[in-house]
Amino acid sequence: MINIRRSNQRGGADFGWLKSKHTFSFGNYYDERQMGFSALRVINDDRVAADSGFDTHGHRDMEIISYVLDGEIAHKDSAGNVATLPPGEFQLMSAGSGIRHSEFNPSQTKELHFLQIWIQPNVYGQTPGYQQKDFGNKKGLTLAVSPDGEAGSLVIKQDARLYQLLLDGNTSVELPASTKRKYYVHVINGELAIEGEIVKPGDGAKVEDINSLVMVAQQKAVKALVFDLP
Score class of each variant (00 low, 15 high):
Asn3Val: 01
Asn3Met: 06
Ile4His: 00
Arg5Met: 02
Gly12Ile: 12
Phe15Val: 13
Trp17Phe: 05
Lys21Val: 10
Phe26Gly: 08
Phe26Asp: 01
Tyr29Ser: 10
Tyr29Thr: 11
Gln34Trp: 08
Met35Ile: 11
Gly36His: 00
Phe37Ile: 01
Ser38Gly: 06
Arg41Gly: 03
Val42Phe: 00
Ile43Gln: 04
Asp45Ala: 12
Arg47Glu: 14
Val48Ser: 02
Asp51Asn: 15
Asp51Ala: 14
Asp51Gly: 10
Asp55Phe: 04
Thr56Lys: 11
His57Met: 08
His59Glu: 09
Arg60Val: 12
Glu63His: 04
Ile64Met: 11
Ile65Tyr: 00
Ser66His: 03
Leu69Gln: 12
Asp70Ser: 15
Ile73Cys: 00
Ile73Val: 07
Ile73Arg: 01
Lys76Arg: 14
Asp77Pro: 03
Ser78Asn: 10
Gly80Gln: 04
Asn81Ser: 09
Ala83Trp: 00
Leu85Glu: 02
Leu92Met: 09
Gly96Asn: 04
Ser97Leu: 09
Gly98Gln: 08
His101Asn: 01
Ser102Thr: 13
Phe104Cys: 08
Phe104Met: 07
Ser107Ala: 15
Gln108Thr: 11
Lys110Tyr: 07
Glu111Cys: 13
Leu112Glu: 06
Leu115Pro: 06
Ile117Met: 03
Asn122Leu: 09
Val123Leu: 10
Val123Thr: 14
Pro128Ala: 01
Gly129Ser: 09
Gly129Pro: 02
Gln131Pro: 08
Gly136Ile: 08
Gly136Thr: 12
Asn137Trp: 05
Gly140Phe: 03
Ala144Asp: 08
Val145His: 00
Pro147Ala: 05
Pro147Phe: 04
Glu150Ala: 07
Ala151Lys: 12
Ala151Phe: 07
Ala151Arg: 09
Val155Thr: 14
Gln158Arg: 09
Ala160His: 02
Leu165Glu: 09
Leu167Arg: 08
Asp168Arg: 12
Gly169Ser: 14
Val173Gln: 02
Leu175Asn: 01
Pro176Trp: 02
Ala177Ile: 13
Lys180Arg: 10
Arg181Ser: 06
His186Tyr: 11
His186Trp: 08
Asn189Ala: 15
Leu192Met: 11
Ile198Trp: 00
Ile198Cys: 05
Lys200Met: 11
Pro201Thr: 13
Gly204Trp: 02
Gly204Thr: 04
Ala205Gly: 00
Asp209Met: 05
Asn211Ser: 12
Leu213Lys: 04
Val214Gln: 05
Met215Tyr: 11
Met215Cys: 07
Val216Cys: 07
Gln218Arg: 13
Gln218Ile: 06
Lys220Trp: 15
Lys223Ser: 15
Lys223His: 15
Pro230Ala: 08
